[in-house]
C-alpha cells in the first residue's frame, strides 16, 4: 500500500505534508469501505482552506504541496476550496462534488484549467505492483498551458498530454532528467528536473502553474510498496560444476575402488563435508 508521500518541486516551494481531517463524513455513504485520499494544490499564488461537506479538511494549504494519503469513508463529498480564512460562509474559489469510490486510492487536485480557471479534478492513483527493476511514472497535466510532451533522458515518454489528463507507464528504475516541452516541439516549458524513480515505487508528477504567468512547475507525489521479486536466478553455465570431476582422476578412483563412477560422483559432493 501507500507508505509515504514525498514532494519534489523543481522550481520552488518547500515540502509540506498535511494530515487530512478524518472526522469528515460523506453525504451519502456507499458502504463501510474506505478510500485513500490525498489532495494536491496546484493553483499558484493562493493559500487555501479546503472544506468537505462543510467541515474543514485542510487549512492554510500552500500551492505546490500534496498531502499524505489518508483513509476517508467512500462516498460523495462536496469539496469547497476557499482563500485561506474566507470560508466556509463566503463564496468558494472552487467547488465540486467528488465521488470517492470504496477501495480507491485517489488524489484530488485543485488546479488551473487549460485556460486558467481554478477547478478540481479527482485522479485515481495506480498503486498496482510493478515488475522487478521498474518504477511507474505518471504525469498529470494540471497547468494553464496547451498540450505538452514529456521527455526523460531526452527521449519522449508521453506525447500530446492535455489538461486535465494523465499518462502513465513503467520505466526502468533510476534517476532520470525529465523535461516538459510544448507538444510536437523542442521548446522546453518546464525543467529539466531530476526525477529519482526508485524501484518498486509509483511516481506521480504534476505539471502545474500557468504558462502565461511564467510559473509552470513540477510537483511529485510518490507511492511505495509496489515492488515484486525477480523471476529467477540463472546462475549456471555449461555444467562444469557437475561434470568436471567425471574424468581422469575420478575414473581411476572408480577402477581402483571397484565402484561405479556414479557413486563417486555423488561421493564427490560429500567429500568436502563432515561425515
Amino acid at each position: 500500500m501507500v507508505s509515504r508521500t514525498s514532494l519534489t518541486i523543481a522550481t520552488a516551494a518547500g515540502a509540506c505534508a498535511l494530515a487530512l481531517g478524518v472526522t469528515v463524513t460523506p453525504a451519502a455513504a456507499d458502504s463501510d469501505d474506505k478510500a485513500m485520499v490525498s489532495v494536491f494544490h496546484g493553483v499558484p499564488g493562493l493559500t487555501v482552506d479546503v472544506y468537505a461537506n462543510g467541515d474543514e479538511l485542510l487549512g492554510d494549504f500552500k500551492p505546490g504541496t500534496v498531502t499524505d494519503p489518508q483513509p476517508l469513508d467512500a462516498g460523495t463529498y462536496d469539496i469547497q476550496v476557499f482563500e485561506a480564512g474566507k470560508g466556509p460562509e463566503g463564496e468558494p474559489a472552487i467547488e465540486k462534488k467528488i465521488e470517492v469510490p470504496a477501495g480507491a486510492n485517489a488524489t484530488v487536485a485543485a488546479h488551473l484549467s487549460a485556460d486558467g480557471t481554478p477547478q478540481l479534478t479527482a485522479f485515481v492513483n495506480d498503486v498496482s505492483k510493478v515488475d522487478a527493476g521498474k518504477a511507474r511514472l505518471t504525469v498529470r497535466h494540471v497547468a494553464a498551458a496547451p498540450a505538452v510532451d514529456v521527455r526523460a533522458g531526452g527521449q519522449p515518454v508521453f506525447k500530446g498530454l492535455e489538461n486535465p489528463k494523465e499518462q502513465l507507464t513503467e520505466v526502468e528504475a533510476g534517476s532520470v532528467s525529465a523535461d516538459v516541452v510544448a507538444a510536437g516541439t523542442d521548446t522546453v516549458v518546464i525543467g529539466p528536473a531530476d526525477l529519482d524513480l526508485k524501484e518498486g515505487t509509483g511516481n506521480v508528477v504534476y505539471a502545474w502553474g500557468s504558462a502565461e504567468d511564467k510559473n509552470l512547475a513540477l510537483a511529485t507525489q510518490t507511492f511505495g510498496g509496489m515492488e515484486t521479486t525477480p523471476q529467477a536466478v540463472h546462475a549456471g553455465g555449461n555444467g562444469a560444476a557437475v561434470s568436471a570431476n567425471s574424468s581422469g582422476e575420478w575414473m581411476a578412483w572408480a577402477a581402483a575402488g571397484g565402484t561405479v563412477a556414479l557413486s563417486l560422483l555423488v561421493a564427490r559432493r560429500f567429500s568436502g563435508r563432515r561425515v
Binding site: 549456471g236 553455465g237 560444476a241 568436471a244
Partner: peptide, 13 residues
C-alpha cells in the same frame, strides 16, 4: 548475492 556455479567456457565459478 548471486554468482554463476560455472561459466560457458567450463570454468568453475
Amino acid at each position: 548475492l548471486v554468482g554463476h556455479v560455472d561459466g560457458e567456457t567450463g570454468a568453475l565459478g
